[in-house]
C-alpha cells in the first residue's frame, strides 16, 4: 500500500502531554514538549539541526541530514516530503508544507536548513 502518515498528525488529533493535559496536535507549542520531557522519567529532548535536504530516488520522499544532540551526530533519514517535524519556536514544518496541509489539514511551515527540530533521546542513554 502507499506509504502514509501516522494518524496522530491529522488536524484535530488529541495528544496527551506527560502531565495528562489533552491538546489538539495543531495547538501544540514548543513548551508542551519541553515540559513533558521534564516530567518524563525516561525521555529527554534533543535538538536536531537540519544540515541538508536532498530529494530521494524514491518518489515523494526526501533525505534529511540532521546534526543530533550535544555531539552533533550526523543522522540521515528518508521521509515522505509531507512528514512534519516540530521546529523549536516555529511549530510543524515539512519539506512540502502545502502537501502536509492538503493531506492532514495541519498548518505547516517550510522546513529549511538550519531549522532546529525537536527529537527525543533516552535519559539514561550513556
Amino acid at each position: 500500500s502507499a506509504p502514509s502518515l501516522p494518524p496522530y498528525f491529522t488536524k484535530g488529533s488529541i495528544i496527551q502531554l506527560a502531565d495528562g493535559e489533552l491538546k489538539r496536535v495543531e495547538d501544540l507549542k514548543t513548551e508542551d514538549f519541553i515540559q513533558s520531557a521534564e516530567i518524563s522519567s525516561e525521555l529527554k529532548i534533543d535538538s536536531s539541526t537540519v544540515e541538508r535536504i536532498d530529494s530521494s530516488h524514491t518518489p515523494h520522499f526526501a533525505i534529511i541530514q540532521f546534526a543530533v544532540g550535544e555531539h552533533r551526530s550526523q543522522v540521515s533519514v528518508e521521509v515522505l516530503v509531507e512528514y512534519p517535524f516540530f521546529v523549536f519556536g516555529q511549530g510543524w514544518s515539512s519539506c512540502c508544507p502545502d502537501r502536509t496541509t492538503q493531506l492532514l489539514e495541519l498548518p505547516c511551515a517550510k522546513l529549511s536548513v538550519g531549522d532546529v527540530c525537536i527529537s527525543l533521546t533516552l535519559k539514561n542513554l550513556k
Partner: peptide, 19 residues
C-alpha cells in the same frame, strides 16, 4: 476518540540510526 501520547509525534534520531 483516540488519544495519542506526546512522544509519538517527535522522532528518536539517535546515532543508532546514523547512516
Amino acid at each position: 476518540v483516540p488519544v495519542f501520547p506526546w512522544h509519538s509525534l517527535v522522532p528518536f534520531l539517535e546515532t543508532s540510526q546514523s547512516n
